[in-house]
Write a protein that binds this DNA or RNA. Structure first.
Ligand SMILES: [Mn+2]
Ligand SMILES: [Mn+2]
Ligand SMILES: [Zn+2]
Ligand SMILES: [Zn+2]
Lengths: 136, 136
DNA sequence: TCTTGACTTGGACTCTGTCCATTGTAGGAT
DNA sequence: ATCCTACAATGGACAGAGTCCAAGTCAAGA
């Protein structure tokens, strides 16, 4: 994730302690934190960081394509730093755990032309649901 | 949709004017209304119906499997009366229009065992995104 | 070091949804 | 036809997630 900070500097971002700590929190595999979770972890390192700044920074990271928004339930959006490795999600219906998964094939080709209603289809999201080992 | 009312009566539902009008609003193809949209349309026929009743009724219809909840954006959930015909969704990224689509194949088989992390996978949702003809 | 526009802050506000005490009524019993 | 009551409807308070804004702060170039 350290090269994320490099890329952001290269894009003309003013580097602040708030942005740095948000970027640091968003590091690792299978990381899908809500904005409030990001805020809580960021606040452990930088106690006075505001919710507004966390929302602003996450929104900017999404616009830059560095982070992906994931809405697997109807609740808070989650922020996924694994944006440069296309993948799908497997969600436990009981505890909410989210894992990154890589299905075979391209789901786009499963949508025939006569089912496209003239749309220009550019993306597809797949969410698998089930029970994780701990909940089963 | 009229047999929906029959099925509900058969399940012991007390038939009220509020439930009737909510069921009537949820009729047709490619219908994906938010709770507030359902409330607005129901209120055209039954002006004093409350938001709480609409939420209660929609929740009951979902529990009974008569209606499906769809969250295509991070905003309000949408309620889909087409619950007895499994399908996926094609969403316009610009105007939010939603169409029902029927991809070929079973997306479940595209998730290999070694990508299941021991989960018991029971369901899969696919959301295609793109631009509708009007927005393109 | 100075300057300035970009960034941060906290709080008010909106939107979506839930909860609950009170009031109303569908539909079976008489 | 009327009564009874358990189930349903109501509206308002409340909660969670997110946006907006005016005022204050500061990163970084001159
Ligand atoms: Mn992910
Ligand atoms: Mn649908
Ligand atoms: Zn689980
Ligand atoms: Zn459109």
């Amino acid at each position: 994730m350290s090269d994320l900070l490099e890329r952001l500097r290269g894009r003309g971002w003013r580097m602040t302690s708030q942005r740095r700590v948000v970027a640091e929190v968003l590091d690792g595999d299978h990381v899908h934190l809500t904005a409030d979770e990001v805020h809580a972890r960021a606040a452990r390192r930088l106690p006075e960081i505001s919710r507004a700044t966390v929302y602003n920074t996450l929104g900017e990271l999404v616009s830059l394509g560095e982070v992906t928004e994931v809405s697997t339930d109807g609740r808070a959006k989650r922020y996924d730093p694994n944006a440069h490795h296309p993948h799908q999600h497997l969600v436990c219906s009981s505890c909410g755990t989210i894992r990154d998964v890589h299905p075979t094939g391209d789901p786009l080709v499963d949508l025939p032309a006569e089912e496209r209603f003239g749309f220009t289809v550019s993306d597809v999201e797949v969410t698998y649901r089930g029970l994780c080992p701990a909940c089963a």
